[in-house]
């Protein structure tokens, strides 16, 4: 009852834009939480993820195995693979997407950890959150790393994914705190970890904050897209992203000739 009241009040805060939360609260106690991570296999890219026994990161004194479920979604929002792993205490394994036998060029994935002994999580009203490290490579030798970006989803008792991304009736703007005018090509990656269609509006701006171009992308549930931006004359210095998500922080790939930089905006 107390938990439900708390959830209700948080949802009201978000609805009325009064001191909103960055992420909603899961309705289920102890439910595991995950980012909606990006993977790509297009244009000679490969993806790697380091999967760790999360119990050893949270309460390492309790030596227990960690049962992990991984769900992969194609760019059009179709669940294309479910994987399961059992990790020993302190174990970390590499998930190399080339081993998964998937043909999709890009999409998103989420990872949920399940622990036997989780009383401490209940007592402290907290949730396990997977926001680990993804590597991207073009040669399978050198990996360019980026950590998890959001607390996007949780998994309920019935193995159903629930979104934690607060939405507003009115569009909210996110301003990535970096400049784009050193790179002549970059990509903005956005996905939709929710069950409702979402419209992203991407504004490209010059050094005086004048709008050069606006790009709209509509994403259905669990879809992923990357927006390629040519910046040959390096006029684009800033971008802004508007959507009904309160916190539309994208993943960004910036290209410098044959090399790339990947970061959260």
């Amino acid at each position: 009852m107390k938990q439900n009241l708390r959830l209700f009040s948080h949802n009201l805060r978000n609805f009325f834009n009064f001191n909103p939360l960055i992420y909603n609260l899961p309705y289920k106690k102890n439910a595991p939480v995950s980012d909606f991570f990006y993977f790509r296999q297009d244009n000679s890219f490969s993806t790697l993820f380091y999967l760790s026994n999360i119990s050893s990161h949270i309460f390492p004194e309790i030596k227990q195995s960690d049962f992990v479920r991984v769900f992969l979604y194609s760019n059009i929002g179709k669940r294309i693979k479910e994987l399961e792993f059992n990790l020993e205490p302190f174990e970390t394994i590499k998930l190399n997407f080339k081993d998964f036998g998937i043909n999709e060029e890009y999409g998103s994935f989420c990872i949920f950890h399940h622990l036997e002994k989780k009383e401490l999580l209940s007592q402290k009203n907290t949730h396990i959150a997977e926001r680990g490290y993804t590597g991207f490579s073009k040669d399978l030798n050198f990996w360019n790393f980026v950590h998890g970006n959001h607390n996007s989803l949780y998994l309920d008792n019935k193995k159903i994914l629930k979104s934690l991304m607060p939405k507003s009736l009115f569009k909210k703007t996110y301003y990535p705190q970096l400049t784009f005018n050193q790179s002549d090509y970059f990509e903005i990656v956005v996905n939709n970890p929710s069950y409702k269609k979402i419209l992203y509006e991407l504004y490209l701006k010059d050094e005086n904050n004048n709008i050069i171009n606006k790009i709209d992308e509509t994403l259905e549930s669990f879809c992923t897209t990357f927006i390629p931006i040519k910046n040959n004359n390096k006029k684009i210095k800033f971008i802004e992203i508007k959507s009904n998500f309160y916190f539309s922080r994208p993943l960004i790939f910036k290209y410098y000739g044959e090399y790339f930089d990947v970061l959260h905006g």
Binding site: V33, I58, T126, I128, R131, N144
Partner: peptide
């Protein structure tokens, strides 16, 4: 080719609560 990233502080392995 270069890579640059920081690690999360321990609090980032959990969400909400203590």
């Amino acid at each position: 080719q270069m890579s640059l990233e920081h690690t999360h502080p321990p609090t980032e392995y959990t969400l909400h609560g203590n």
